[in-house]
Amino acid sequence: MANIKSAKKRILVNRTKAERNKSIKSSVKTAIKKVDVAIAAKDKEAATAALINATSVIDKATKKGVYHKNTSARKVSRLTKAVNSIA
């Protein structure tokens, strides 16, 4: 356990930020799953709508510093490619 005041504060701040990041990552995963479900059902309209929402959620997470920009670009690219492959 930390004894120095600044170290104690760092523990508290890191815990708070970790909870925030976990919440944001969870919402991103949920948005991605909604796209995947629509793709599995081969519902082009629902998949497109879910993709727009997922892209927005991923971009917001990137803006908040939860994801690196290349990571978010990769996620969006893979989702877009999957939605476009629906015949």
Rank of each mutant, 00 (worst) to 15 (best):
R74P: 00
V35E: 06
T16D: 09
A54S: 09
V57P: 07
K64H: 10
I24E: 05
K22D: 11
N70Q: 06
K25M: 12
K75R: 09
S6A: 15
A61E: 02
T30I: 13
E45D: 12
A50Y: 03
N3L: 14
N53R: 02
D59F: 03
L12G: 00
K5Y: 07
A49R: 08
K81A: 12
Y67A: 08
N21V: 02
I86V: 07
N70C: 06
A18T: 04
S23V: 03
S56Q: 05
K33L: 09
V83W: 01
L51V: 06
K34G: 05
E45R: 02
A73N: 09
R74Y: 11
A82L: 08
R78F: 12
I32D: 01
K5F: 10
I39P: 02
I86G: 13
S85Y: 06
K8E: 12
S56D: 05
E45M: 02
L79R: 07
L51T: 00
Y67K: 01
I52L: 11
I32M: 14
N53M: 04
A41I: 00
K42Y: 02
S56N: 15
S6W: 03
D36P: 06
N14W: 02
N53I: 06
A46E: 00
D43A: 08
K69T: 14
N21F: 13
I11V: 12
V57R: 02
I4H: 15
K9G: 03
E45F: 03
